[in-house]
């Protein structure tokens, strides 16, 4: 793998991308444009394949209903005309409406009922201490997190409701912990991406086997 021409070119481009961390430079701009060009090329090729396979070939095979879909798709291009841009709204409305219907038909079951059922079915006492603490935290975190978003008892702080205030505060900390975990995971993920590229560069130039 070391010093293969393809890899050497890729490794030089990787160094070009990393160079932006230190200063904006012409090498980075060059690499950036190559990246955008390639990405656009791949996207256009993929889109072309989809249009031909799903929008043209079926018509040639006698499935004339596809013409309706093609016309709806073409209407999107009317956005380029000031006079006829309103036509694109019909297609957009159809896309948004259909997508929303498909997204939400199972969302309640997948996101809400499933999660609540999982917590309700979680036993408070398990055969090890760590498991018990973890499950207890899941219960308290769920209740406290929900209480934090209850605004009907006098706002925040919920005046005259000491129990609510305690749970609301625990809920706030629970949410903060969640965001902390989320941020930590983000750092981990981004680091992994850079690490893999650094190892690629080192391998390409024969620094590591």
């Amino acid at each position: 793998m070391a010093w293969e021409v393809n890899n050497v070119i890729a490794a030089i481009l990787v160094i070009g991308v990393i160079s932006i961390a230190f200063k904006d430079n012409i090498f980075f701009k060059f690499v950036e444009r190559i990246f955008i060009g390639i990405t656009l090329g791949i996207t256009l090729t993929a889109a072309y394949g989809v249009i031909v396979n799903n929008g043209i070939i079926p018509i040639l095979q006698g499935n004339y209903l596809v013409i309706v879909a093609d016309i709806m798709g073409l209407l999107l291009l009317s956005r380029f005309s000031k006079s006829y841009s309103w036509l694109s709204r019909y297609t957009l409305a159809l896309i948004v409406g259909m997508s929303l219907a498909i997204f939400t038909r199972t969302a309640i079951s997948a996101l809400i009922i499933g999660s609540i059922a999982a917590v309700v079915n979680t036993p408070l006492i398990t055969n090890n201490l760590l498991g018990t603490v973890s499950n207890l935290y899941a219960w308290v975190g769920l209740v406290a997190g929900l209480v934090y978003f209850v605004f009907t008892t006098g706002g925040i702080p919920k005046q005259g409701k000491p129990i609510f205030n305690i749970f609301s505060r625990i809920g706030r900390y629970t949410i903060m912990i969640y965001f902390g975990v989320y941020f930590g995971s983000t750092v981990l993920g981004r680091e992994t991406v850079l690490l893999e590229r650094i190892s690629f560069v080192l391998r390409t130039f024969g620094i590591i086997p």
């Binding site: 499933g114 989320y182 995971s185 993920g189």
Partner: peptide
């Protein structure tokens, strides 16, 4: 990826 783990873990825990 790690960024999505918080959501994925929820689905694993609830059996989905």
């Amino acid at each position: 990826i790690a960024v999505d783990w918080a959501e994925l873990k929820m689905f694993i825990d609830n059996g989905a």
